[in-house]
Amino acid sequence: MSAGVVAGQAARGVAGIARFALVVAATFLGLLAITFFIGRVVPIDPVLAVVGDRATAAVYEAARERMGLDRPLLVQFFSYVGDVLTGNLGQSISTGRAVVDDLGRFFPATLEMATVGILIGVALGVPMGVTAATRQGSWADQVIRVLGLLGYSVPAFWLGLVGLAVFYAGLGWVAGPGRIDIFYEGLVEPVTGVYLIDSLMAGEWEVFRNAASHLLLPASILGFFSLAYIARMTRSFMLDQLSQEYVTTARVKGVPERRVIWRHAFYPIRIQLITVIGLSYASLLEGSVMIETVFSWPGIGRYLTVALLNADMNAVLGATLVIGSVFILINKASDVLYRILDPRARR
């Protein structure tokens, strides 16, 4: 390859990264605008919340001025963006701590659950989708299709409750709500905040087993939803692939069917699948709100719902920002990954 071509590719790469950064920045700004807007349309007057509803008009005005609420909306918005960028999300009225600190404390729990969930979803969903596509119309295909539709129609919180009733109360296969039994609490020094990793690093097998037992059910339920989506998308990608002429070419060459399926049909879609898995992961972070509520799982989702019920707007908006940001980032990152990995899009 000549130097000119390489330079051209590099230039395009830089331009691509710049464009990507711009899109992500715009989307973040959009998210901030929405949270800002939500913060301003709250029927609860933030000034009243500070001065109390028996304050005189003069006191009220003074407080309003002090809080910067008399300035034009655009100025207020920019100062809000500045606050967020410097990590100032305000105080939570329910925990009394800075929202940023709360979020840092609660996030690892959500991350742990969603990650195990997506691993389950990928490990089962991809092979199921491939099987369904290669045996289109078979009973396996029908079962997978119904599972996929159930993933769109079963309420997560309901499945969580039923799961608790059956596997915890009924069969006793898993531990109940919460992240860990009280007995084990505090035994392991939190390093990452992810119990599975922390307990392994400390070599505490008992703690690890207990944490895993608590995690299994909620993560499996999240896994079910991502499995349904991943299997469905894999199936449809694979069906499209299997009808491609180059798959026939491979068969003409006498390539064994297993290799036809995985090397020729599946390999080209792995990149599309990364996007799907990314989307699914992002939606699991979102879906954890419901599951965490059902399982009393001390993650961001539960933090958000508790804040919602207490009308703790700083906490609500903070949690919304964090989940929204991660969601956007995963979304956009899988998009970029697609461009990098596909030889057709790479040139």
Partner: peptide, 24 residues
């Protein structure tokens, strides 16, 4: 479409929650 894309890449459920929290 820029506006639409921004809304599209937001987590729907969380956004709905935040809106309801604000609106009551």
């Amino acid at each position: 479409m820029g506006l639409t894309d921004i809304f599209l890449s937001m987590p729907k459920l969380i956004l709905a929650l935040a809106f309801v929290a604000a609106l009551g």
